[in-house]
């Protein structure tokens, strides 16, 4: 690990200014569960760390208004345990508590988690050229394409990269049409969650649509667009290689609004199968206005993968992903009835 300076400003303005003042190599750090991990692997090599966790007022959880507002510095565990989130928005709570371990959820923040980098093994291994990786060393190639790609993406991959977007929370937020508030050198702006994540294309090393020195401050989840104002008929269903403490092979965030047994609206997002949090609009379309049966649920799941492009070892993700969507739909439907 390279040496780095460390400061811990107490206001967002101070943090943004510190970033602007620093030479190249400055990074914000919150919980550090991704950044410090990758620094230990010598993949991230910041020279200046600006610890944002002492910034005041950014750890609040406000569920009182039309929109749920989560301060970017709220720990994942705290948001997961919030009674309103846990009771009325199971898709959010489950996406949080099914991620990592309680220790890491205590450290990681809901804002920082949005910027978690891929878990592609070729990305994480082989610094100094053992495995080529366009994300790590732009232009070096991609060892995962044509390699051991069981865990890789089947949706949204390019000829440069098929690394999976690893998060759970961003998938749930994608289903919920969330947005983030950002401050930076150019002031404040708001970005829909769907626009925060980029497809790899020819530039897989650019993963987020954040400019240098920009800082996520708040995550907003609208509830006025939900008929009931809550998302009780929702779930985050996560299938992995063990029961807990593992990244998704396939996951589905589903928010269902059902009336008289008919689906008014289904919002579906996928994790573990795509290069970014993946909104499955094709699957949503299959369900609109329909009665939700197990058959319809699997049909919707399959629709989500119609454009999927599997590699050598991950073809199973098409079927697993479809079934995960189906199970998630049935779980959400069950909840919306109760």
């Amino acid at each position: 690990m390279r040496p780095f300076s460390y400061i811990r400003p107490t206001t967002a303005e101070e943090a943004v200014n510190a970033f602007a003042d620093a030479e190249a190599g400055a990074r914000f750090i919150a919980g550090g569960t991704t950044l410090y991990d990758l620094m230990k692997l010598n993949i991230e090599r910041p020279t200046h760390l600006i610890d944002v966790t002492a910034i005041g007022g950014l750890a609040t959880i406000d569920t009182s208004g039309d929109r749920l507002r989560f301060g970017a510095l709220a720990p994942m565990s705290a948001v997961a345990a919030d009674p309103v989130v846990a009771g009325d928005y199971p898709v959010l709570a489950e996406a949080l508590w099914k991620a990592a371990s309680q220790q890491l959820r205590n450290m990681a923040t809901v804002g920082g988690n949005l910027l978690q980098r891929t878990r592609c093994m070729y990305f994480r291994n082989g610094v100094d050229g053992v495995y080529p990786c366009n994300k790590r060393e732009p232009g070096s190639g991609c060892a995962a394409i044509g390699g051991l790609d069981r865990g890789q993406a089947v949706l949204g991959a390019s000829g440069s990269c098929n690394a999976v977007s690893p998060g759970d929370w961003p998938v749930a937020l994608t289903a919920m049409d969330a947005s983030v508030e950002i401050v930076g050198p150019a002031g404040q702006r708001r970005v829909p969650i769907a626009e925060l994540y980029r497809l790899p294309g020819d530039t897989p090393h650019i993963e987020f649509s954040l400019a240098p020195g920009e800082l996520i401050t708040v995550i907003e989840v609208p509830r006025e667009t939900l008929e009931a104002g809550t998302a009780r008929g929702s779930t985050y269903h996560k299938i992995r290689d063990r029961e807990s403490y593992a990244f998704a092979l396939a996951s589905a965030a589903v928010v269902l609004e059902i009336e008289d047994d008919q689906v008014i609206r289904a919002r579906i997002a996928l994790g573990g199968v795509a290069t970014r949090p993946w909104r499955a609009t094709e699957a949503e379309a299959v369900l609109a206005g329909q009665r939700l049966t197990p058959e319809r649920a699997i049909e919707a799941g399959r629709a989500a993968f119609r454009t999927a492009q599997p590699g050598r070892h991950n073809r199973f993700k098409l079927e697993l992903g479809a079934r995960t969507v189906a199970d998630a739909l049935l779980i959400a439907a069950e909840r919306s009835r109760s």
């Binding site: 878990r119 093994m121 290689d241 063990r242 029961e243 807990s244 403490y245 593992a246 990244f247």
Partner: peptide
């Protein structure tokens, strides 16, 4: 994380 051994659950 990637060599998956049994966890408590």
């Amino acid at each position: 994380a990637d060599y998956v051994v049994a966890v408590n659950a």
